[in-house]
Structure formats: C-alpha cells, structure tokens
Amino acid sequence: MKSGVSKAEHVHSVFSRIARRYDLMNSVLSFQQHKRWRRFAMQQIRLREGADVLDVAAGTGDWTLALAKAVGPSGHVIGIDFTKEMLDVADVKLHKQPALVDRVEWIQGDAMDLPFADDAFDLATIGFALRNVPDVLTVLREMTRVVKPGGQVVSLELSKPEWPPFRAIYYFYFYRILPWIGGLAAGAKEQYAWLPESLTDFPPRLELEEIFRQAGLTEVRSYPLTGGIAALHVGRKMEDSPTHGDAGSH
C-alpha cells in the first residue's frame, strides 16, 4: 500500500480496477475452493425462507444471489458494497436470473457505518472482505447492530493455516506465487499483491472468534476450511442484546 493512502482508499482502488476479472481470479487463485466454502457456509447458517438478509461487501454478488435463492420469493436480500464497479458486475448477474430481481437490492455504502436501522435483518454476512476493512471490530459491531435479537452474523474469510509445515508452504504460495499469477492471468500484479498484504495483520481464527464476542455476539463458533486457509465464523445476537448506536441516525 502506498504511503499516505488510507486503507479504505487503497482497497477501493484495488477492487475498482479488478471488478470485471474478480470472479475468474477467485476461481483460479482458490482452485475453485471458494465455491465449496460457500456451500458449507450455507449449510451451517440454515437460512429460512422469507428471511431478510444483509450481505456486507457484496462484491460481484455471487453470495448475495445464493442467499436470495435460499430465502425464496417472500425473502429479501440487500447487497451493500462501497465499490460501484463491483456492484455493476453484480447487477448484470442479477438480471440474468429474472426470478431473483424482485428479492435483491444493491446499495453503495460503507461497512463501517451501515445505513440501516437497528434490528432490521435476520442475518448479516460478509464474505472475503472482513480483512479489507479499516477496523474489524467496528464492522462486526455494525453488523450486530442491524441484526435482530436472535439473528446471526457470519463471516467467511481467508485465514491462516494452523499446522506450521502447511502454513509455510501456503505462505510461500500466497506471498510469492499468487501476485505473479494475478499479473500473468489478469494483468493486475499490483492489485493482487494486496491479497497477501491484507492477510498479514488479519487476526487468526481463534482471535477472530474473540472479536466476534467483543462485538456483542454469543454462541460464537468457527470452522477451519481446507487446512485453515479459510475460516467460517458464526455468532448470534443475544435476545436481550443492547444495540450499538442510535437507530435514528441511520
């Protein structure tokens, strides 16, 4: 990241530039594992039909559209992202699935200050984006605030392998090989160099569990995926949980 540029500005620049190549590169760089991780996440959250769902940092919309299918015709899903170029790609995908158009809404906005009232959603999710935000705890508190008491907050994110030999091999790939693949396949070496950079200071799985609890969530559980290179975290807002912030200001 360039000196004098904030994390938010840098992330916006990165994803604006790679928006149209984002899906291809996700598949290439994760060896198609991200699709399997999302299926596992859907199994764990057990989303009911008719639910109101918020997908934070929705990106190009694959997970948002999967959620829309799960909630059925009586449900509603909002995908929020601060990068217009990513949402433009997501909207093209949505209109290729006409049955979902009436149950999905895109909003350009900030995960650090969600423009929604307290207790508005049954579920709030964030996928492969929590490591990119300026402050993890602030985003999780915002997600907790907008979820109804008893609702769930979910993060699916890259993580750090816990077995040292595998971690060493993975880090070599992630820090040395991945940016080179990004440059070769997408002409975006500088942008894909951000992926390992973004993970360096991101908390490992068990530390992120604790941050979930600090955000006001209970029944927190996490699952290491594919040797720990990704992790699913799930927490529930307490039935009598105090909200964070003033609903009247959102």
Rank of each mutant, 00 (worst) to 15 (best):
M1E: 09
S3A: 14
S3Y: 13
S6A: 01
A8L: 11
H10A: 13
H12E: 10
S13N: 13
V14W: 03
Y22W: 08
S27E: 09
S30N: 04
W37H: 03
Q43I: 06
R46Q: 13
L47D: 00
E49D: 13
E49K: 15
G50H: 10
G50F: 11
V53Y: 02
D55C: 07
A58R: 07
A58V: 10
T60K: 05
G61M: 03
W63F: 14
W63S: 12
L65D: 01
A66T: 14
A66K: 13
L67F: 09
K69T: 11
G72F: 02
G72N: 10
G75Q: 03
H76Q: 15
I78R: 08
I78A: 11
G79W: 04
D81R: 05
M86D: 00
A90C: 10
D91E: 14
V92M: 10
K93N: 10
Q97H: 15
P98R: 04
V101F: 10
V101T: 13
W106S: 13
A111E: 11
D113R: 13
L114D: 06
L114K: 06
L114C: 05
P115K: 09
A117C: 13
A117H: 14
F121Q: 02
D122C: 07
D122G: 14
A124L: 02
G127H: 03
F128P: 11
F128T: 05
A129H: 00
N132G: 04
N132W: 09
M143R: 06
T144Q: 13
R145H: 01
V146G: 06
G151T: 10
V153K: 02
V154H: 01
L156H: 07
L158A: 13
L158F: 15
L158I: 14
S159F: 07
W163G: 01
P165W: 03
R167P: 04
Y171G: 11
F174V: 06
F174T: 06
R176Y: 06
G182I: 02
G183A: 08
W194I: 09
L195H: 04
P196D: 06
E197I: 00
D201Y: 13
F202T: 02
L208N: 00
E209V: 14
G216M: 08
L225N: 00
T226Q: 01
A230L: 08
L232I: 07
H233E: 07
G235S: 03
T243Y: 15
G245Q: 08
